[in-house]
Amino acid sequence: MAEAGAPIIEAIGLTKTFKVAQKPPGFAASVRHFFKRTYKEIPAVTDVSFTIRPGEMVGFLGANGAGKTTTLKMLTGLLHPTAGRCVVDGREPFARTRDFLSAITLVMGNKQQLLWDLPARDTLRLNAAIYGISDADYKSRVDELSGMLELTDKLDQPVRKLSLGERMKAELLASLLHGPKVLFLDEPTLGLDVNAQVAVRAFLRRYNERTGATILMTSHYMADITALCSRVLVIHEGKLVHDGELAALLRRFGTRRELRVELSHAVDDAKLRTLGEVLSHEGNVARLAVEPAALVAVVGRALAELPVVDLTVHDPPIEEVVGRVIGKSQRALPNVVGAEQGA
């Protein structure tokens, strides 16, 4: 258990290198590969260090293959670091002690623990038995969490009959039944529609407020991060390139909003350029990047000056923000992590 005031998650020079078999294409290469394998060392995570205090909600951003999931797997004890070490809730994860496993949970948006052909309640009963939860605690926790997740009337339906959003909520319920102190969430809103995303975010915020649980989450949706996390870690090609306040990150790198307009007939690019940077313009649909301070005025001008059929405003895609951070970090990598930590 972590001492009072001590970080609940601590990564110190965390490094993971995978040995991957290499096979060039072609018949001869296949034959050679059959008799003699050649391996290449792929660095997935390199010298990543950070600490997270109890109760913090931290976003973990990076492109596909940047090393987010590998880091989460090291922090949950599924992967053994090649170098460096990590401590979660005062314990070394890879020892996988009962106390450690009872203190954490890992929810992966693309994997499910629910038994597909049975009602979610059966998985909950299974987890209650596995974690040694008493009948009274089981009942009160299921009532509380299913209420928060608005899932009470869905628990007795077979999982396969639930919508994607309901399944994710049930996954969260199953993963949180044992009352973990540390939640590792890997793309928890992956593939969900907007309403389901909003519901999951609202639940996570309330759960954090009620229990004081620490949350480290990855997401491809900027809205997840902006709604929940005050601090973000950005990882690129296995290296931590930003650790700091989300607001500071957005001020520096991601202030622009994306304006999507659908027009009744085509207009010139030149006309669109007077409103903002044209990100794309295909047929009657255009995407513009607009500074937040100018957003209201630009929307007004667009409605007045363009033949608008539909207009929506979005957060910048997470890749764009990450891309800007990476662009910056590649120019001044040694300073970015330290500078932002102090921000």
């Binding site: 052909d117 049975l118 059966d122 998985t123 009963r125 299974l126 209650a128 038995a129 596995i130 040694g132």
Partner: peptide, 16 residues
């Protein structure tokens, strides 16, 4: 209790 829970849920799973 743990084994009882596992058996009960897996029996439900098998009879599905």
């Amino acid at each position: 209790r743990k084994m009882g829970g596992l058996l009960s849920v897996y029996y439900a799973y098998m009879t599905a």
